Amino acid sequence: MTENIWPIVELRQYTLHPGTRDVLIELFDRELVETQEAVGMRIVAQFRDESDPDRFVWMRAFPDFGTRGDALTAFYIDGEVWRTHAPAARATMVDTDNALLLQPASADSGFVVSGERPGHDATELPESRVLATIYHIDPPTAEFAEFFDSRVRPLFERTGAAPIGCYVTDPSPNTFTPLPVRAETVFVCFALFENAAQRRAHLDRLAADSTWTEQVLPELSKRLSAPTEQLLLAPTARSMLR
């Protein structure tokens, strides 16, 4: 199966109490995937952040903002599933407010996911890895997207990191205020690798590329309003994006 993921995407980074990430992942993958999808969302990915043992990163998608508000209300306010499992989930959590509300940077830059999600009994962890790069920018986002496509993307592709999705902040009002989203404007690029070694090789090749270090990176830095965030992500056993 090949699936175009819905255009409104939340990228959520949760800070957890030390030693509880696997507890949350087991609960999430068992109880909180299909049950969210049943009320109108699509769970795109669940990750361990390999640079922070106390961080869980995940993404979900919606077809439109009306559906987003209705689906989140149905799950978090009206639903029995969250009411039942919220105490156990919240016991692992320190902070859940690090969330970005995103839309594709262009008509063809959203995620396309192939394959079925592994079932509830899945335990084997994929060897694949994801690199998510979050650029903090000032509007207009279209100007940065053009710069990325013309100057940054070719170098990413040359060093083995062809983007699988590029997103920008969606400026629409948050349709479910109990869950806040970050207000800053960002451009987020996702790249998928067969394994961690390939991701490291890309980062090493990029750092050694003189065109990157002497030309593109200085231009890029002038366009940023805050330091770049880089997420080194490992899919969970049931992540669709893998």
Rank of each mutant, 00 (worst) to 15 (best):
E3S: 12
I5S: 09
W6S: 14
I8F: 06
L11H: 09
L11W: 05
V23Y: 01
E26R: 14
R30I: 00
E34L: 09
A38M: 04
M41L: 15
I43A: 08
V44P: 10
A45H: 04
Q46H: 07
Q46K: 06
S51W: 04
F62M: 12
G66I: 02
T73L: 01
W82G: 12
R83K: 15
R90Q: 11
V94M: 03
D95G: 03
D97W: 01
A99Y: 00
A105P: 08
A107Y: 04
S109Q: 08
G110P: 05
G119V: 05
T123P: 00
T133P: 01
Y135T: 01
I137K: 08
D138E: 15
T141M: 00
F144V: 06
P154G: 11
E157H: 03
G160F: 02
A162N: 09
V168G: 11
T175K: 07
P178V: 09
F187H: 14
F190G: 04
A191Y: 02
N195Q: 03
A196C: 07
R200G: 09
A207F: 00
A208L: 10
D209G: 05
T211A: 12
Q215A: 07
L217E: 15
P218N: 06
L220M: 11
S221G: 13
L224N: 09
E229A: 08
L233R: 13
T236Q: 14
R242H: 03
